[in-house]
Amino acid sequence: MSAVPMEYYLILSAFMFCVGVAGVLIRRNAIVVFMSIELMLNSANLTLVTFSSYLGNSIGQVFVFFVMTVAAAEAAVGLAIIIAIFRNKLTVNIDAINIFKW
């Protein structure tokens, strides 16, 4: 495994993180925004696993396990929120659900 320099993984994860950030900022569909956030979380997971593996220490992977739990919980709540809003407004476009100024 030492064949792949650690930086490669980190750069890939940084790239995914930034793509996720860009997705949150430019997309208007709430579900896609949420998916972009999942992308960010996954990039963080990749970093954690990379470090964990190169440190030879499993704490990072335990943490990833918790992040996944949280992501699942967030997905349940987040999608419930999106369903609730869809029932009222029949749209999940962030721009269209603006009563207040954003």
Binding site: S2, G56, Q61
Partner: peptide
């Protein structure tokens, strides 16, 4: 990316294959 290269973590972290496998 710049900071990752500058921080250069692989300089200090040398993967120990056995430990790494065990950790996972």
């Amino acid at each position: 990316a710049f900071l990752i290269f500058k921080g250069n973590p692989s300089r200090t972290l040398t993967a120990d294959e056995a430990a790494s496998i065990n950790a996972g």
